[in-house]
Design a protein around this nucleic acid. Sequence first.
DNA 1: GCATTCGTTGAATCTCATC
DNA 2: TGATGAGATTCAACGAATG
Lengths: 377, 377
Amino acid sequence: MSAVRALADLSPLPQKAEWLDTILKGDCVAALDKLPEKSVDVIFADPPYNLQLNGDLHRPDQSKVDAVDNDWDQFDSFAAYDAFTRAWLLAARRVLKPNGTIWVIGSYHNIFRVGASMQDLGFWILNDIVWRKTNPMPNFRGRRFQNAHETMIWASRDPNAKSYTFNYDALKASNDDIQMRSDWLFPICTGAERLKNDNGDKLHPTQKPEALIARIMMASTKPGDVVLDPFFGSGTTGAVAKRLGRHFVGIEREQDYIDAANERIAAVVPLEAADLTVLSGKRAEPRVAFVNLLDSGMLKPGATLYDAKKRWAAKVRADGTLAIGDNAGSIHRVGAALQGLESCNGWTFWHYERNGGLTQIDELRRIARLGMERAGA
Amino acid sequence: MSAVRALADLSPLPQKAEWLDTILKGDCVAALDKLPEKSVDVIFADPPYNLQLNGDLHRPDQSKVDAVDNDWDQFDSFAAYDAFTRAWLLAARRVLKPNGTIWVIGSYHNIFRVGASMQDLGFWILNDIVWRKTNPMPNFRGRRFQNAHETMIWASRDPNAKSYTFNYDALKASNDDIQMRSDWLFPICTGAERLKNDNGDKLHPTQKPEALIARIMMASTKPGDVVLDPFFGSGTTGAVAKRLGRHFVGIEREQDYIDAANERIAAVVPLEAADLTVLSGKRAEPRVAFVNLLDSGMLKPGATLYDAKKRWAAKVRADGTLAIGDNAGSIHRVGAALQGLESCNGWTFWHYERNGGLTQIDELRRIARLGMERAGA
DNA sequence: GCATTCGTTGAATCTCATC
DNA sequence: TGATGAGATTCAACGAATG
């Protein structure tokens, strides 16, 4: 049989659609409506977060935080934001293949509304994934916990769509043969990866790290799949898709972002097919805080700690601080103050009584660390 | 004067409300409606998950998940869960003090709906907190990521309630002097802490670890505060509250849980008051005005103050203001103006000469405070 | 060249008592 | 109740400058 005949026997190769690997300019819903239905395998969406800021915020050193105050993040009310959300989700659902899945990222400002809308529209949540940031911005005024994570929702198109892509074994193999958890640790996007404008300032206020998108694609797409990003921004989704041998479609309103994204993606060199297997995520060294010893019951509030020579005795309080007379604070601050020093490593300075002798609390930290390592703390 | 007369002169001690440190039996909303408005400092709520497949929202614990059921109507089911959620949230909001806060825990099944309802009802989200489990249940089918976390929403009663309790300094000190993040790591409740029934099976399917509740209480309550738990279950909230010197109110429908919780709480030994002292920061210190340093003679009118690098020299005036050239005003205003900043902490900016070196005037404030404490100010 | 210091920055619903 | 003013408040990463 000749090669020509063999080719003729095959069903025709799918013509690469014109819109593949391009950025569509315009409103997100209008652009989605132009795409054929059931045509993309995965959607990654990073919609506006509906941040509601009250005036300027300054760091303790008086420098001003460059906040997200762009037009595209202004909504009059929750109702307005919900209407916007439902409109783009509905349009996105139409273009998603029946066994496709969607990822949406957000913060506490918007993610609850987005998640509820997704459920209302018929999406079926498979997981919520927490992106833990290694280097989040601190809380400068000390009135809340440091906002150190964002949330992603991963959902199938329908409740009974069971044949979605999930590369379970590859993820597990890349994770030291432990199944991948729902909490991921990545740094925010900085350094050379962060696109800059002509002034040297960040081009886009919310550029996501490529490593985060790469894990998403390695988890939920196959090579050759089509990934749609309806809020394309600086084009991270396109850059990662090209590198990993996936097709992308981007939708973006602002020409500046489109130009920068096109340039960025053009510079990407795709990986060899053979290398498209494993990407390992960063694991942090486990950090144990003093309060964790109370959490785990290794130390009890009211317990007494001593320095090595039993010159000082301090009491452990329920809030995880140490107190000796008027002097109270962290194990480090109290140790430093007693010795009249600037600093002190409380872990090695303080001891607890065991078997009639003294043992460094650092020993307890070592034990606690063993328990945390499993979770990749 | 007789003891009787003296007592009569005092304003009446607040009678301990009958419902304090008890469990109210019954439906959550009905019981909440019986409590006085604005009477609790913090609410911790662990509401039922949204079990659409059996339709019984109030008794999730005995349910079996039927994976294939074509009859259910997701819209009706979500709507029913939303109605339930809004009803208890609204009732809970009424009993919350204006500066109180609420914690709600959930998973991806229900937390998005709960969060959206909270925003709709006027609660103001302060943080979402991720409870990362050191030992979560694996995903057995390999079709999803291991569901390794739950989400808690922490919210104030109103958007502009700014005086809620947040023990920032204690949390930071307990965390090795680094501010506490929004992702917490704890083991799930197992072992001796887990309540068992007569068969040796777990008494309650979703018993939360005491360490998790303890961190919540240490973060957002003071000793003596009232903590309400409208889904009391096995009574973890009550046990932790008693141990940490807080009052609790529980609401629970099932007598088995009430009996077990009462027994459990009765066995709890409260910590000593001294061990419950919460470390507070500068904000809680008694205020010292700059002019007090003149009053007490620590500084004299005409004295010269410098910034750390002796770039500026300002003169202290008899009225407690500072002057340098045309620039006069409070230590803060003058410091800010010199640096061209919006604000400045004059206490740490200005220094005086001592032993040939420069010392912050904040040191004088510290000494002044010691004097005030002796005087019982 | 290498170690150290200093400055910059990042999706942020970021004060509170007093008058 | 709104305006005023005192004064409290940051972590990790990166890069440039300095020693």
